[in-house]
Structures are given as structure tokens and as C-alpha cells.
Write a protein that binds this DNA or RNA. Sequence first.
DNA 1: TATCCAAGGTAAGTT
DNA 2: AACTTACCTTGGATA
Length: 311
Amino acid sequence: MESGTISLSTLSGGFDAHVTLESGQSYLWRREDGRMYEGDDEGSPWYYTVLDLDEKDHDVTPVPDDEAEPTVVRVRVTDEAVEWEASCDAHDLVTHLLRLDDDLDRIIADAPDRDLVHEAYDAHRGLRLVRDPPFGCLVSFICSAQMRVERIHEMVSSLARAYGDEVEFDGRTYHAFPRPEQLAATTEQDLRDLGLGYRAPYVQRTAEMVASGEAHPADFFDMEYEAARDAMTTFVGVGDKVADCILLFSLGYLEAIPLDTWMQTVVSDYYPECDRGNYAETSRALRETFGGEYAGYVQTYVFHLLRTRED
DNA sequence: TATCCAAGGTAAGTT
DNA sequence: AACTTACCTTGGATA
């Protein structure tokens, strides 16, 4: 096992693993103590992820080892540093996956001058976007349709347990998120039995599209934003909203703002002038209001503020 | 205990 | 192109 630390003093804007990994933007990390979404972050819990990527995922996600074994990485945040332990040297990988290279202080300083935006940024300092591997992110958000955050996480965990490769690390068995061909080999009924409901055929058929080489989410990495969103909807079970999630949480399109039920509420309650009656136009208007380039950061903070505040 | 309802939407059919 | 409707499952609310 290798390990290392990244001093918090070197990170612009700090880092809060609890809010970053339990705010519903990634479903590919879990807590070693199993207490995900129980609201407690006492004792600097370890969060882990297991990567078993295909070739095109690698174009986006730099996993340093070429071993057959999946890569296990875990992270926790103490008062002074981000600590990591992994089956390989994971300094750059951790930095990449958790966007520790983002200049968060500057992003916040450049935020649009709106009360709601200030409130959101003040409420959850250290929340960062993530860079999930493309295929896992794609499947996660296909599963997210009309689901609570906790259950999306259960679905993704079930897929890993049922179809992902096993790997031993530090005396424990871990499961990687399945590779495309592993999910493509399932049947709709298999996935329904896992509790995916009507999303089952979406996941199976999309996995088939990726495994066969017909399309891969990493193909849409370096494109004009709206063209990339349109391209992403070629996958079964992916509409505009899920497409925006993949662009934002995996491919680094920081201007993407997924318009879900929460953000629809934000539009009607705070920015009714942005409601243009359809997804594309409303998205443009809200993106402008949220300052353009880093609108996705604003969206994630506002989304989390609305989800956590009591009223 | 039974019934209802909404949860980070999408696809397919209708007007 | 805009508008409706069906869709799995489940935990929590309501009767």
C-alpha cells in the first residue's frame, strides 16, 4: 500500500470530503464506516473508490498503474491535510478525481453578486466538483431518474457488488464499478432484479452501446458545450438533464447546469425571468445569471444549499 | 394496516 | 415542436 498527504494550506479554498462526496454529485465513492448520508462527519471518515476503467475512460481519468487489478483509493481530511492510501501512487489521481487543482477561492470570488449564490457559497466552504470516470458517471446518472440520492447510491453499489471485479486491499475485499462489457452482458431482467426498475433496460442498452464501440461518453470530452450535451443524449436513458450531469461531474464542462426539480424550483422562486419554457433556453438564461464559465459550481452549491436547509 | 405520493427524468405517442 | 402519459421501486406521510 502506498500513502501520502496533500497539505490543506496548499489548496485554494480548502477541501471538505464530507460535503463533496455526500452531496449527490458522485455515486462512485463510499465511506469505509458505511455511514453515508447519515449526516455525521465525526472523526474524519475514510472515503474510497475502486477504479477499473476501459481504454477510453483512461483518456479522461489518469490511473497510473497498468495492472489487471482494479485500483483502490481512499481519502480522508484531517485538520491539516488530505490523506490518501491506495494500491499505487495516487497523488495525481486524487488531485484529479476530487478537483483539488481548482482555484476555489478565485471561483468563489468571481461568483455572481446574488444573495442566493452568496448564501450557498458561505454555507458549504470546501465543496468541490468531482471528476468521475465517464462510464461510471454515465450509468450513475441514468440510474438517478426520479430517485432519492441515497437510493441512487444503493443502485450503483449493487451494480458493483453484482458485476464488478473484486480486489483485495488492506485485508478487505472491494468491488470496482463494472466495465462496459460487464454490464452489457447482463439482461434487463437481471438489472430489474437488482431494483433498477424502468432504468434497467436503459443501463443495459447504454452499456451495450459503449461496449460495442458505437459511442463512449469520453468521446464528447473536447467539444463545444451544447454540442456535447446533444451528443450525450444519444445514450439510452440520457436526456438533457442527465447529459448535463455527465458533462459537469465527469468531463469538466464547468458551465453545465443540470436543470432538475430542485433547480426548476430555484428558477421559479428566485429567477423567474430565466424561465423560457424549454430546457435549452432556460439553461442558457440561468447560465448567464450564474456567471457563465463556472455556472456549474454555482449550481452545485445552490443545489446542496436547497437540499440541506430546513424550511 | 392500507393507500398514496414523490423521488436530481426519459422515451414514446399525440396534437 | 410542444404537450401527455407511462414507467419500477421504495420510504415516508396520510387515513
